[in-house]
Simulated assay, not measured.
Amino acid sequence: MNVTLASLSHQTGLAVLDHLERSARVPVVDGLHAQGDLIVVPLALIASAVAVRPEARWTDVPPEGVELLRGAAGGNPHTLVADPGTCRWTADVADAEGLALGIFEASAVVYLLHPEHGATGCASGAYVVRRQREHISPDWHGRTARLVAD
């Protein structure tokens, strides 16, 4: 299937910014990748630190998508998009570092769409969606990292 930024934008109703090439095919990744202030990590890589809570409620991801996070600086949403019956999402997770927004399980390629960053595809599998952080010089509280603000 040849999914483009234009087709994802049309499917979700999310407009993307003019600087993005809408006709380009969206790449599919089967490993770690980032999009602005989010990082998508295969669950197997961090299963010792992140887990689905036993009482977790799962949501099927509809074709128009599920908003995972709205960017702090621009207010643009990161939206998980999937064909019907191919992906489920839960925010009921335990994360030792407190960075996880949730976990999704996909039986087919799914897409993460953002109006400013475009889209990336995720191959089938289980992934953790986390906030990204960056290292900084120690602040007056002694912190050496902060969340990336997109």
Score class of each variant (00 low, 15 high):
residue 2 N to K: 11
residue 6 A to I: 07
residue 7 S to E: 14
residue 7 S to M: 14
residue 7 S to I: 14
residue 11 Q to I: 11
residue 12 T to W: 01
residue 13 G to Y: 04
residue 14 L to F: 05
residue 14 L to Q: 14
residue 14 L to G: 03
residue 15 A to S: 15
residue 16 V to F: 04
residue 17 L to M: 13
residue 17 L to Q: 14
residue 18 D to S: 15
residue 21 E to G: 10
residue 23 S to N: 13
residue 24 A to H: 10
residue 27 P to L: 06
residue 29 V to I: 14
residue 29 V to A: 05
residue 30 D to S: 13
residue 31 G to H: 05
residue 33 H to Y: 14
residue 33 H to L: 13
residue 34 A to Y: 06
residue 37 D to N: 11
residue 37 D to L: 07
residue 37 D to C: 12
residue 39 I to R: 12
residue 41 V to Q: 02
residue 41 V to A: 00
residue 42 P to R: 05
residue 42 P to L: 01
residue 43 L to D: 08
residue 45 L to I: 09
residue 47 A to L: 06
residue 48 S to A: 15
residue 49 A to L: 10
residue 49 A to C: 06
residue 50 V to A: 03
residue 55 E to M: 06
residue 57 R to M: 03
residue 57 R to N: 04
residue 58 W to S: 04
residue 59 T to Q: 15
residue 60 D to K: 08
residue 60 D to I: 05
residue 61 V to G: 00
residue 64 E to A: 12
residue 65 G to W: 01
residue 65 G to I: 00
residue 67 E to S: 06
residue 67 E to D: 04
residue 68 L to D: 00
residue 71 G to M: 08
residue 72 A to W: 09
residue 72 A to D: 15
residue 74 G to M: 15
residue 80 L to V: 01
residue 80 L to D: 01
residue 83 D to S: 13
residue 85 G to H: 11
residue 85 G to N: 11
residue 86 T to E: 14
residue 86 T to H: 10
residue 87 C to A: 15
residue 88 R to L: 02
residue 89 W to D: 02
residue 92 D to S: 11
residue 93 V to P: 02
residue 94 A to C: 04
residue 94 A to K: 04
residue 95 D to M: 06
residue 95 D to V: 07
residue 98 G to I: 08
residue 98 G to D: 10
residue 98 G to A: 04
residue 99 L to A: 07
residue 99 L to N: 11
residue 99 L to E: 07
residue 102 G to S: 03
residue 104 F to R: 06
residue 105 E to W: 01
residue 105 E to F: 00
residue 106 A to Q: 07
residue 108 A to F: 01
residue 108 A to N: 05
residue 109 V to A: 13
residue 111 Y to G: 02
residue 111 Y to K: 01
residue 112 L to E: 00
residue 112 L to P: 00
residue 113 L to V: 02
residue 113 L to E: 02
residue 114 H to C: 03
residue 115 P to H: 11
residue 115 P to C: 08
residue 115 P to Q: 12
residue 116 E to I: 11
residue 116 E to M: 09
residue 116 E to T: 14
residue 116 E to D: 12
residue 118 G to Y: 04
residue 121 G to R: 02
residue 121 G to K: 02
residue 122 C to R: 07
residue 124 S to E: 13
residue 124 S to C: 03
residue 125 G to A: 07
residue 127 Y to P: 02
residue 130 R to N: 01
residue 134 E to K: 09
residue 134 E to S: 04
residue 136 I to M: 02
residue 138 P to G: 05
residue 139 D to T: 07
residue 146 R to C: 03
residue 146 R to I: 09
residue 148 V to S: 04
